[in-house]
Design a protein around this nucleic acid. Structure first.
Length: 679
DNA sequence: GTTGCGTTTATTTTT
DNA sequence: TAAACGCAAC
């Protein structure tokens, strides 16, 4: 480890000893370097044992990179036992060990969003408020939000008195009860249950406090109430908590992230040392000045200003285009020109937008001009039906109480257990309080089922029990999986139901990808298991079979298209921040419903600070929306960038007037009209 | 069990 | 505009 390569503030942070530490790390200020150096410092200079170090991140990618870099510095051997994990995978580890204290079994399933939605749809039907229909996603969102805020079902308060709140209030307790009966937890539970476990079980808390004596947290601005409590409990004894983050880059408020956590760190951990990292090693001076100018308009924030030792660079460009097509063409023009002039790769360019629909015009133009591009985001591999079906089999094999997935596969592919039979089975299960799986096992004794149905059920039970045994054979898991696919005829089912042969083939290949993912998991893992594989799959850890994960896509020589959210943590020599218009950035929703303009401004800030050497902002005068042409107004954030930093070509118009002036102008216009009317 | 048609709705998505 | 969904009809 070479501390001397760090700047003074970075050194101060990396070498801090005991007690709480807040590192306010501006965009591009080398925070990963500081965190990894700090871990190395704790280990090498202060003799902290690896198993006493816990580093928590939000993404698998961040965790992986952190581990790699620490291993590079310390050597693999001295990192053994160190826990560098995401919040979720840390919590799974803890729960696998200690969840029984909460009344779950250790083979609990982790429910994906799709699993959650299936369950919630079902529960909405059961509650049934006057036959009115409800969007399950909105109900799920309300429940998830409650969990993130640590609000238990019985304390869920209806505040705004809208229908969805009442529905959520009705569904939430049932949902939570069902999950427990199914021996399943959702993503939010992973955090919430661990927080509860630590709160209610002093012995468990002591165990982990003794184990994790030094805790480091990355992207602290993104922590929610549950994660905060978890950290507070874990660090409660020794207070060796080091958090790194940037309040200006908090863009996940809508997922429960609580900006207060980073703003109030010293209040929560008195005596905390605060280190600001403001030197930026990424962008040119003008880009940073633009970023600073925008973000300083936010009210609640930690004052900081990024600076660079490098030059100012060219000014930030602003292109006001006619419409979305013109905008796309303008961006292409720039890509062609710059690429040629500076001998750049396509992958040096990124096009960032607020909403995914905006990518379309750019995709079309890129394709038209034969420029290679990758689109990041969109449908996830595990959202594909065929993958979910196969995974459902595996989930049930591991946890037969998982009724959401049991019902998913009970008659898929068709095996003669129709809807009527299923309904009867479910009713029996409800009446006798017996898990559905037990009802299936004893279905032979039920007199309201026909012989055919009973036979089919018995065959299904036998199939599942057989595969449960088969999967336990050592070193045969991939073969077993393929046998399972063949035996239940999943492929035939796809070819039967999908009429487009190419599409069908792709789906079958996706299923094969699951087998490949399992194979690569088996290769990598020391003591692999089916539950272990499912866990990786659920937590979207590297076994994700999609042949184009975000990381892989970024390796190709292609222009990158993605949302501003997806771009956090990345950087590109040339960035196009497109659609700089009111109702995109800030988004219409925040103007009419959520009113969190600050988060939109942070989003703008994140977009700007992705650029290393050149930033181009674009917008259109009009664009087609919902099939209709609309006039567009330049984003108010443009007006926050000082004119001398901006290079406005194309349109003559300067960025829009500041808000107050616009208001004044509007009220003057209003006064005029009134006076005319008054005459 | 499909197919087809009308209705509805339209952010962001680290796990 | 377009995609996703639900419901009714085949």
């Amino acid at each position: 480890m070479d501390i001397s390569q760090l700047n003074p503030q970075q050194q101060e942070a990396a070498c801090h000893g005991e007690g709480p530490l807040l590192i306010l790390a501006g965009a591009g200020s080398g925070k990963t370097r500081v965190i990894t150096c700090r871990i190395a410092h704790l280990s090498a200079a202060r003799g902290v044992a690896p198993e006493n170090i816990l580093a928590v991140t939000f993404t698998n990618k961040a965790a992986r990179e952190m581990r790699e870099r620490v291993e590079e510095m310390l050597g693999k051997k001295r990192c053994k036992g160190m826990v560098i994990a995401t919040f979720h995978s840390l919590c799974v580890r803890i729960l696998r060990e200690d969840i029984e204290a909460l009344g779950y079994k250790k083979n609990f399933s982790i429910y994906s969003t799709a699993d959650q939605l299936r369950l919630i749809k079902d529960l909405i039907q059961q509650v049934d408020i006057g036959g009115r229909k409800f969007d399950a996603e909105r109900v799920l969102y309300a429940i998830s939000d409650a969990k993130n805020r640590l609000v238990p079902p019985e304390k869920f308060a209806v505040k705004y008195h809208d229908d969805y709140e009442y529905m959520a209030a009705a569904v939430y307790p049932r949902y939570q009860k069902a999950l427990k009966a199914f021996n399943a937890v959702d993503f939010d539970d992973l955090i919430m249950l661990v927080a509860r476990l630590l709160q209610e079980q002093p012995a468990v808390l002591e165990k982990y406090r003794a184990r994790f004596r030094y805790i480091l947290v990355d992207e602290y601005q993104d922590t929610n109430a549950a994660q905060y409590l978890l950290l507070k409990l874990l660090a409660g004894g020794h207070r060796n908590l080091c958090v790194v983050g940037d309040d200006d880059q908090s863009i996940y408020g809508w997922r429960g992230a609580d900006l207060g956590n980073i703003l109030e760190f010293e209040r929560d951990f008195p005596g905390a040392r605060v280190v600001k990292l403001e030197q930026n090693y990424r962008s040119t001076g003008n880009i940073l000045a633009a970023a600073n100018a925008v973000i300083k308009n936010n009210g609640k924030r930690r004052e900081k200003a990024l600076w660079t030792a490098d030059g100012a660079g060219p000014r930030v460009d602003y292109l006001l285009c006619e419409d979305e097509e013109d905008e796309a063409r303008a961006v292409m023009e720039r890509i062609h020109g710059e690429r040629f002039r500076e001998e750049l790769n396509y992958s040096d360019f990124a096009i960032l937008y607020r909403t995914n629909v905006q990518s379309r015009a750019f995709e079309e133009q890129l394709r038209y001009e034969n420029i290679p591009y990758v689109l990041i985001g969109g449908q996830q591999f595990f959202d594909r039906k065929e993958v979910k079906d196969l995974i459902a089999y595996l989930k049930v094999l591991v946890n037969h109480r998982d009724e959401v997935n049991l019902l998913r596969i009970l008659n898929y592919p068709k095996r003669g257990i129709g809807e009527t039979t299923a309904d009867r089975l479910i009713r029996h299960s409800a009446q006798t309080q017996n898990p559905l799986w037990e009802v299936l096992k004893s279905a032979g004794e039920l007199d309201d089922l026909g012989d055919k149905a009973q036979e089919a059920i018995a065959a299904f039970v036998a199939l599942m029990e057989r595969y449960r045994r088969l999967f336990n054979r050592h070193g045969m898991m991939v073969e077993t999986l393929r046998e399972l696919i063949a035996e239940v005829r999943l492929e035939q089912e796809i070819y039967r139901t999908v009429d487009d042969p190419a599409k069908a083939r792709r789906r079958v290949e996706n299923m094969e990808e699951v087998a490949n993912a399992l194979a690569s998991y088996l290769e990598r893992e020391e003591s692999p298991s089916l539950p272990g594989f499912l866990e990786k799959v659920s937590l979207l850890d590297e076994e994700r079979p999609g042949r184009d994960s975000k990381e892989k896509k970024l390796e190709r020589d292609a222009v990158v298209l993605m949302s501003i959210h997806s771009s956090k943590g990345l950087e590109f020599p040339h960035v196009f921040l497109v659609g700089m218009e009111e109702e995109f950035l800030p988004h219409k929703k925040t103007l009419t419903e959520t009113f969190d303009l600050d988060e939109e401004r942070r989003l703008c800030y994140v977009g700007i600070t992705r650029a290393r050497r050149r930033l181009v902002l674009t917008g259109a005068r009009r664009r087609k929306k919902y099939g209709e042409m609309q006039l567009r107004v330049p984003s108010r954030f443009l007006a926050e960038i000082p004119a001398e930093l901006l290079n406005a070509s194309r349109g003559e118009e300067p960025p829009q007037l500041p808000e107050e002036e616009k208001d004044q102008r509007a009220s003057k216009a209003f006064a005029n009209i009134m006076s005319i009317l008054g005459d």
